[in-house]
Write a protein that binds this DNA or RNA. Structure first.
Length: 303
DNA sequence: CGTTGTGTTGAT
DNA sequence: TCAACACAACGG
């Protein structure tokens, strides 16, 4: 069958989405058309940085440089607006234009909290709706200790390994389904698969940090339109004791053999593994005082 | 499957 | 920079 790897093909064109608008307006019968369009139109928000969602909920977003940073979805329009405000202060300073409070003095605890975390960490909290909790917790420990980058983005040695991508595993990824969804973007870039014609997938070998070899079935599920690792995955989950939020990391050797590697890291405390531009930057200085890295200890059965 | 949040365009 | 719009990709 044709279910073999595409040999590191070069042209992985991103989705060709023309995104065309309505056809064209005929001279007359335009009234009905306009009514239809009007009826399916989403209500715009009165708040800055807040956009409606098709299901009646509200999204929050902020722009930096030329890129949108998504801040999550919320049931209440005002909640989304508050979240935007937090992001605005972190991204643009305490004088940023916001939806609600004009801004505080600038020396309060929340400002300190904001400046003690990277943009990526703040965005993560906002998206997960944990910002208020984290802020309160920080206030309780008035010491303001923080778990910083905790060496997550792999300060590291890629002697002959090239980092391909990370994924924070979902509950489903570590559940009973025996499958790991590979985000399509990464799957098609790094693990191209010959699709169509009833492809049952291929076997992929990975070497873990301990040198142990793992073999997973890799295929495309038409039902969910997802690339997945299936057979063999559950054993990896079990042996490593993977929990939701833990991050699996994929590498590949730069040598011609193209050996693949798989590794994992514990769930990140604050920030995500996302590595966008706004993620890269570190919190503003000032809290050099708390240079304490805290690693969460969690019972883990490992071999 | 229902929902997210990304791709994209066009305004300001 | 910003929101409107459409919908592919995602999680469960």
């Amino acid at each position: 069958m044709e279910c073999s790897f595409i040999n590191e093909s070069s042209s992985n064109s991103i989705s060709p989405s023309p995104a065309n608008r309505l056809p064209e307006k005929r001279p007359f019968a335009g009234a009905l058309e306009r009514m239809e369009v009007e009826s399916r139109k989403l209500p715009s928000s009165q708040y800055k940085g807040v956009v409606p969602q098709p299901n009646g909920r509200w999204g929050a977003q902020i722009y930096e440089k030329h890129h949108r940073v998504w801040l999550g979805t919320f049931n209440e329009e005002s909640d989304a607006a508050k979240v935007y405000d937090v992001a605005a202060r972190r991204f643009r300073g305490h004088d940023a234009i916001t939806n609600f409070k004009p801004t505080n003095s600038g020396n309060d605890l929340e400002t300190h909290f904001l400046n003690s975390h990277s943009k990526g960490e703040i965005v993560d909290m906002l998206r997960k709706h944990t910002y208020d909790d984290e802020l309160e917790q920080m206030k309780r420990n008035s010491g303001g200790r923080k778990r910083m980058s905790d060496g997550f983005s792999d300060s590291g040695r890629e002697k002959e390994r090239e980092q391909l991508f990370d994924k924070a595993v979902t509950p489903s990824d570590v559940g009973k389904l025996n499958r790991l969804v590979i985000p399509k973007q990464h799957a098609e870039r790094h693990f191209p698969l010959q699709i169509g014609s009833g492809c049952k997938g291929v076997l992929l070998n990975f070497e873990d940090a301990g040198g142990k070899l793992w073999r997973f079935r890799y295929s495309y599920w038409n039902s969910s339109q997802s690339y997945v690792l299936t057979r063999g995955w559950s054993r990896f989950v079990k042996e490593k004791g993977l929990k939701p939020g833990d991050v699996v990391s994929f590498q590949m050797s730069t040598t011609p053999e193209k050996q693949r590697y798989i590794d994992w890291k514990p769930r990140k405390i604050n920030s995500s593994n996302n590595s966008r531009a706004y993620m890269a930057e570190q919190p503003v200085q000032a809290v050099r005082l708390f240079g304490v890295n805290i690693f969460k200890a969690r019972g883990r059965s490992n071999a």
